[in-house]
């Protein structure tokens, strides 16, 4: 471990999503200015997955982005810095290590459980173990926290933060803490951006499993039809299932439309950096896909509330339109040199 270079005072910046927010703040703090969409896009984190066999509280796993740690590792590979990361078996040791890193003047990333963070509003507290945040200091017994999804900085007492870091269950953090070392001051965007898009294009359009990528989106429409045809699931399970889809798409900090808008923002920013009209058009197409996803959320929740009649064929049709528009975006992006 090396002693950290003197850094400017830490600046909190609100983000849509926790992990991309942490990475963007961390890079910026270490002298490599990076927006949240750039962190998301460079790590090729856009996806779609519906895995009915993996259940969370009785509902299937649905993801619009790659699994936790994918963003930070993706950016690490593209930018080329060293990530010092550590997990702990002993919670006290984990807290001591955090204190030491803070005393050294570092800004430290932590993986935590949302449920035990005292500053989260009651209605947002669910058992999700892969919430990322930054700790930038201590004051008395409180930790000073930059939680990317909040407008301003927040605080947590030691006992709560310890509980949040060491909560058990799926995706248990085991006290994971991390900080970067040797962050370069520039990125070769002309190389990194096409490489990142190429990787994401493979995930979205050439996944080896039918439940991942664009095929997965169509699969969700089919799955909805199947559930609606099952008399034992139609009345109670179907509305919960629809609500679950919308929560995964909108509630969990996706920047809107299940990360489609963040990704479009990345494409647009890249278009400017590289002076590329292809990327500009790709961004516009991805925005159209995002708008269609928002339409899905709107109609699905109205149907759940009984404000309009339950119409599963219509929802299936909207999902197919989402898939069509995403395919159209990737077709444009394939024209970018280095992608196909």
């Amino acid at each position: 471990m090396t002693t950290p270079e003197p850094l400017n005072a830490f600046q909190h910046r609100q983000s849509a999503h926790c992990e991309s927010g942490v990475v963007s703040s961390m890079m910026t703090h270490h002298g490599l200015a990076m927006s949240e969409p750039m962190a998301f896009g460079l790590s090729s984190s856009l996806t779609f997955a519906l895995i009915p066999l993996v259940k969370l509280s009785g509902l299937p796993l649905i993801a619009y982005r790659m699994p936790p740690k994918f963003i930070i590792n993706g950016v690490r590979k593209q930018v080329g810095f060293h990530l010092h990361s550590q997990t702990f078996r002993n919670a006290d040791k984990g807290m001591d290590a955090l204190d030491r890193a803070l005393d050294e003047g570092r800004v430290v990333g932590l993986q935590t459980s949302v449920f035990w963070l005292p500053y989260f509003p009651e209605d947002m507290r669910f058992h999700f173990n892969a919430h990322n945040l930054l700790v930038y200091g201590r004051e008395g017994s409180d930790y000073l926290i930059s939680d990317p999804v909040f407008e301003g900085v927040v605080r947590a007492d030691r006992a709560s933060l310890q509980k949040a870091r060491f909560a058990k269950g799926a995706l248990a953090a085991k006290g994971l803490m991390y900080f970067p070392e040797h962050v370069p001051s520039t990125i070769d965007y002309a190389r990194a951006i096409p490489a990142a898009i190429r990787k994401n294009e493979r995930i979205m359009t050439r996944a080896p499993f039918p439940f991942i990528g664009v095929r997965g989106i169509r699969g969700m429409g089919k799955n909805l039809r199947k559930v609606a045809a099952d008399a034992s699931k139609r009345d109670k399970y179907l509305p919960l299932y629809l609500g679950h889809i919308v929560r995964m798409q909108e509630e969990i900090g996706t920047g809107g439309a299940g990360f489609r808008f963040i990704y479009a923002a990345f494409l647009r920013e890249s278009a400017k950096l590289l002076g590329s009209d292809i990327l500009k058009e790709g961004a516009a197409k991805m925005t159209e896909a995002g708008d269609e996803w928002r339409m899905f959320a709107l109609r699905a929740t109205r149907m759940c509330k009984g404000r309009e009649a339950m119409d599963i064929p219509l929802l299936d049709e909207i999902l197919n339109r989402c898939a069509d528009r995403e395919i159209a975006a990737w077709e444009v992006l394939r024209q970018l040199p280095g992608v196909k």
Partner: peptide, 10 residues
């Protein structure tokens, strides 16, 4: 509102 309905039903 759509998000509120989804969270609300959970």
């Amino acid at each position: 509102e759509a998000e509120a309905i989804a969270t609300g039903s959970a």
